[in-house]
Structures are given as structure tokens and as C-alpha cells.
Write a protein that binds this DNA or RNA. Structure first.
Length: 483
DNA sequence: ATGTTC
């Protein structure tokens, strides 16, 4: 039996009495149905998070939560840096700044559908996918150090994208305080040929349609650029590739060495390795992790450039003429220093979001001026078969440090999914459902079957009921490049 | 997620 107390129809609490060392309660946002489906391990993992130094108010898990490395995926933990708050790679994820970007077109489903095979085949060719894939952007190691300090801004300067893309990216695509001097040569080696690559696992690039019946909030949809019935959009999901992975690996080792001996921090699970934010090791990782953020922003920027090239090629018009404006780019795996009001006082908190999206409400600093009246766009990627959502941040999101879900969330392990589905058969089945898909790996495709994920509509509904974010439009896939 | 077991 799970140690959960029901707070409301969409919120559950694990009291501090559940486990020795819990500093605050743990809370899971989910409907009863979603709680039933949730991994037993989530309650255990999120209550471990509640023992970490500096954790403020409560350790949170979003409705798409599932088992992860140390922290559950879907975890949110805000650490008070003035109270010995820690930074933990396990609370950010190995794939630093794994995230989503959404771009609109002025094309309709009717215009795109006849070309879908051509578009996807070209995208498959032009956006390298799969484990170990290399990008077309050739940079020296020193140039790559510049990339990880400048992020998407570096790409724009090189001609990969439009100036406006930056203002429509979280942190304007370049987070300050990223120092390449804090990065190992090994991480530089792994990352320097990976700019503009999709990766593998749950990373994908999808052509989607905004059908009129799926517009939930017309005003917000229009504000975010969804203005035409059956408008075609492109959504993609990828991260910092081997670079971010190496950064996380390097600093996990550092933290494991100093955590107990130097800082006297005792943890229940070594996967929660951490160091005080205000310590040399914590600050070094923070600066290195920001390089991971920037690598990922650069990666998505170059991929956007290639998507524009492909559409331009297929339709014989410029990307400008095709109206290929970016809606937004959001991170799913970060820790950010933010000011939040706790017990009536403004506090500096390091907000870890792992498989969770920042969802700032209307009027807040840090969201593009054009979206200020509406709230921050949130791009939530569902499974490749079912659909995804564009959401918006709301003022009641203060309860979760303005964080919401990031996707559907798995219901079963990759191993289990592989046993249940066959990649080649799944491709055929998806074709019958009107989704043309290309993949580098049949095995990888089987792992990502829609049936291995929770009901995205239920997850999104739960975030809306709880007041974490609200629905704008549901997007359905017609083509997919699966990493 | 990941040069999918330094």
C-alpha cells in the first residue's frame, strides 16, 4: 500500500513520518486513476528527495511522474540556498536541458498530407538521429567551448536561424554563467560533433496538426500562433546528447567524493548525490550544467534551421513565406536559481525540474513580452502515437514553484515495452492510423509505443484541475522521425 | 538519456 494521504481529487501527500530524515512532506499531483497506474517507486523516490538539505515547502512530483535515476522523472525540488540547499545532478537528469521546441507553419493538413512521406524522409536524412549520430556543424574543440557558453546565440551568429528565435526561447537560448573551464576534455570530445542531432530514446521530431475540435482556448492559441484551421506545426524533443551525459557523470563522481567527508551530508540513495549550492563543487557543477543547457539550446536551434530548410525545399517557398515562426522552446531537465514567495517572504531557491516544465504565469519576468498577458507557453510532448499539448502557465502555479508536467510519462519499463511490441509491426500499425514514421532503431520504436505511456489527456487534465497549467491546444501527429 | 557496462 502506498503511503499516500489524499489532499484533494488531484493531490496526494506523503507525511514526514513516513521515512526518517524527511525534512518536508512529499506531494504527488495526480488523479486517483493516475495514482493507481504510478510506479510504486515514485512515492519512495520522492520521499527520499524530501530528505535533502534546504528542501523548501515540499518535494513534488507531477502527474506524469515515473521511476528515474535518484529523483523520479516528473520531480520538482526547490532548495533554499541560504539554508544549506544542495544541487543534485539526479534532480536534473543525465540529459541536461532535454527539452521541446515548437514551430508553426501557415500550411494546412490538406497541403502537407500528400507530401508527408517526402518531408519525413528528408528530415530523416537532414537531422541525424540515433545513438552516436554526428551533426553537420563542424567545430574545433575551442569553438565548441564557445558554443556551450553562448548557446543558440552562437547559432544565430553563424546563420542558423532568425533573431526572433532567441527571444522565443527560455533564457533567450543562452543562460549566463556557463563556463567551459568547468567542463572536462572528455565532455568536449563527446559533444563537439553532436550539434544538430536528435539522439535516441524518447527523442523525436514530429509533424502535427491543430484540428479545430482540439483548440481548447482560442484566445491563447491565437496568441501563440495557432490561427488557421488544421494548421500544421512541428514539435521536436531532444537534449544535450553525450555532452550533457558526460557533465552529469563527471560531477556525480565529484559529489560522491565530497558529500559525506567534506559536507557531512548523508543520503538514503547514492543516486541523490549532491553538494551544497554554495560550495566550490556545487558552483562548478552549476556552471558546467549551464554549459549543458546552452549545448541543448544550440542543438535545437540548428535542428530548427534544418527543419526550415526541408520545408522550404519541399514546398518551393522560403521558410519566411511558409510562416515558420518558433512558438517557444522549453527545458524539461534543469535547475534554475529563481525567486519565489514562501510563507510571505521572497526567497532564492534552486528549483530542480527533472522531467518537469517551468510554467510561469501571466505577467512574470522571464517570459517573452508578447506572451506576458497570457502566461508562458508550455510544450508537453505526449507519446508518438497519441498526441501532444500546448499549454500555458497560470498564476495558481505558485504552489509548484510554477512547474508542470512535461509529457505523458511511462507506465512500463523499456524492457517490458520491448516484449509487448514489435517495432516493424508498430510502424505498419501507425501508418494505418495516419502517422508516417521513420526510425533508426526498431527496438527503440517498440520502447516508445503509445501503449507504454499514460493517457496524455488524463495527465494534462490533472495539471489543469490542480491549477498548474491550462490547456491551449491538443496536437495530433501525422509524421514522425524517431531517434 | 548515453560512444545503451569505465
Amino acid at each position: 500500500m502506498k503511503p499516500l494521504e489524499r489532499i484533494s481529487d488531484y493531490l496526494w501527500e506523503i507525511p514526514t513520518s513516513y521515512k526518517p530524515g524527511m525534512r518536508v512532506p512529499a506531494r504527488i499531483y495526480a488523479t486517483e486513476q493516475l495514482i493507481q497506474e504510478m510506479d510504486e517507486a515514485v512515492a519512495d523516490q520522492i520521499s527520499n528527495v524530501a530528505t535533502l538539505p534546504g528542501i523548501t515547502r515540499s518535494a513534488l512530483c507531477m502527474p506524469d511522474g515515473h521511476f528515474g535515476y535518484g529523483f523520479p522523472i516528473g520531480g520538482v525540488a526547490a532548495m533554499d540556498i541560504a539554508e544549506g540547499g544542495v544541487i543534485s545532478p539526479g534532480g536534473i537528469g543525465f540529459d541536461i536541458n532535454c527539452g521541446m521546441r515548437l514551430v508553426v507553419t501557415n500550411l494546412t493538413e490538406k497541403e502537407v498530407k500528400p507530401q508527408i512521406k517526402k518531408i519525413i524522409d528528408k528530415l530523416y536524412e537532414r537531422v541525424p538521429a540515433g545513438v552516436g549520430s554526428k551533426g553537420f556543424v563542424k567545430v574545433s574543440r575551442n569553438e565548441f567551448r564557445q558554443v556551450v557558453q553562448e548557446g543558440a546565440k552562437w547559432c544565430i551568429n553563424q546563420g542558423y536561424g532568425w533573431d526572433e528565435d532567441l527571444e522565443l526561447t527560455e533564457e533567450n537560448g543562452c543562460i549566463a554563467g556557463a563556463y567551459a573551464s568547468k567542463i572536462s576534455d572528455k565532455a568536449i570530445d563527446r559533444g563537439c560533433n553532436q550539434i544538430g542531432t536528435l539522439g535516441s530514446g524518447n527523442h523525436y521530431l514530429e509533424i502535427q496538426v491543430a484540428r479545430p475540435e482540439n483548440i481548447v482556448n482560442k484566445e491563447l492559441a491565437e496568441a501563440f500562433g495557432i490561427t488557421i484551421p488544421n494548421q500544421v506545426v512541428v514539435m521536436f524533443h531532444c537534449g544535450s546528447r553525450g555532452f550533457g551525459h558526460q557533465v552529469a557523470t563527471d560531477y556525480l563522481q565529484v559529489f560522491l567524493k565530497v558529500m559525506e567527508s567534506k559536507y557531512g551530508i548523508h543520503i538514503l540513495d547514492r543516486e541523490l548525490a549532491c553538494a551544497p549550492f554554495n560550495s566550490p563543487e556545487g558552483q562548478d557543477y552549476f556552471a558546467a550544467m549551464k554549459c549543458g543547457l546552452n549545448m541543448s539550446f544550440a542543438n535545437r536551434q540548428v535542428i530548427l534551421h534544418r527543419i526550415r530548410e526541408v520545408f522550404s525545399d519541399v514546398f518551393g517557398r522560403s521558410a519566411e513565406a511558409l510562416g515558420m515562426h518558433q512558438v517557444y522552446d522549453v527545458s524539461h531537465n534543469t535547475a534554475k536559481l529563481e525567486e519565489h514567495i514562501v510563507d510571505g517572504k521572497a526567497r532564492s531557491l534552486l528549483v530542480h525540474r527533472k522531467g518537469s516544465t517551468r510554467a510561469f504565469g501571466p505577467g512574470m519576468e522571464g517570459i517573452p513580452d508578447r506572451y506576458k498577458p497570457y502566461g508562458q507557453p508550455v510544450i508537453l510532448g505526449g507519446s508518438m502515437e497519441t498526441g501532444s499539448y500546448l499549454l500555458a502557465g497560470v498564476s495558481t502555479g505558485a504552489q509548484s514553484f510554477f512547474s508542470t508536467a512535461h509529457g505523458s510519462g511511462r507506465t512500463m519499463s523499456r524492457t517490458k515495452a520491448r516484449k509487448q511490441w514489435n517495432g516493424e509491426q508498430l510502424q505498419k500499425d501507425m501508418q494505418k492510423q495516419g502517422i508516417y514514421i521513420r526510425t533508426t532503431s526498431w527496438r527503440g520504436l517498440a520502447e516508445e509505443a503509445g501503449g507504454a505511456y499514460k493517457d496524455v489527456d488524463a495527465v494534462v487534465k490533472a495539471t489543469e484541475l490542480a491549477g498548474l497549467s491550462k490547456r491551449v491546444v491538443r496536437l495530433v501527429p501525422i509524421g514522425n522521425v524517431k531517434g
